[in-house]
């Protein structure tokens, strides 16, 4: 019998639409606490929109979202976003050095980040201390993504939302990040929701997987579902990606 986990996030008949266009349609389900759930699906399926709703950057146009069993609207948006961290797909950097970017989450709370702390966060994502004083605009795409992940870790959130964080990385860096995510998940019991186009990654790292298409959840379950999907659409999607 499948073990039932306490939900970190629960969605109840959630819709999101802009004008007449439905981006998310009637999604109900839970992201288990302390587990890694991967979101897969074709571009435009609504994965990023779903993540942004969990971080409170946007609100559902219908339905409810619960974070640790409390309605999302009852949280102060600032507290919510510190508790539910998000690494954005474009890995935007503010003007300044890598250190200033890493310090940003604390600076927003009028706190400072010790240099040793910054070096430690850089080490977590496989970057050495020489990066600390580099200008963020001089970083490569992969390095930006690594700094973006390190910056998200600074708030020490209980839930982390990761939007295609390895898409611009080389194979070696992808492996490093995957190991880091697993390490953080094991060590701090952080709940992770990870959007990825890499189905092997979803299988290897994710405890659970949601397959989204056209704003709807088509299939969910343990990540091994990707090896033998029940839904015809998911079967075709998996075959298409794997080929």
């Amino acid at each position: 019998m499948e073990k039932v986990y306490e939900p970190a996030i629960h969605l109840n008949h959630v819709d999101f639409q802009i004008g007449d266009s439905k981006i998310i349609q009637n999604i109900t389900g839970s992201f288990p606490k302390g587990k890694i759930t991967t979101l897969v699906g074709p571009s435009g399926a609504g994965k990023t929109t779903l993540l942004k709703m969990c971080n409170g950057l946007i609100s559902p146009t219908a339905g409810e979202i619960f974070i640790h069993n409390e309605l999302i609207s009852t949280y102060n948006p600032v507290d919510l976003r510190r508790n539910v961290g998000m690494a954005l797909q474009s890995a935007p950097m503010i003007k300044g050095t890598v250190y200033e970017n890493l310090e940003l989450p604390l600076k927003l709370q009028n706190k400072k980040l010790a240099e040793t702390g910054a070096i430690s966060y850089l080490g977590d994502v496989g970057l050495d201390r020489s990066f600390l004083n580099k200008n963020a605009v001089d970083l490569s795409g992969g390095q930006r993504q690594k700094v973006s992940i390190a910056r998200t870790l600074v708030n020490q959130s209980e839930i982390l939302l990761l939007d295609e964080i390895t898409s611009a990385l080389d194979r070696a860096s992808v492996k490093e990040i995957e190991e880091l995510i697993v390490k953080i998940n094991n060590k701090y019991n952080v709940t992770m929701i990870w959007i990825t186009h890499n189905l092997e990654q979803a299988l290897k790292i994710g405890h659970y997987t949601w397959v989204l298409m056209k704003g709807e959840v088509i299939e969910t379950g343990e990540s091994k579902l990707l090896e033998n999907p029940q839904n015809e659409l998911v079967k075709r999607f998996v075959q298409g990606v794997m080929e």
């Binding site: 976003r81 961290g85 503010i94 989450p105 927003l108 709370q109 998200t152």
Partner: peptide, 8 residues
């Protein structure tokens, strides 16, 4: 969006 997402 980045600053909002980090709790700004």
């Amino acid at each position: 969006e980045l600053i909002l997402s980090l709790g700004g």
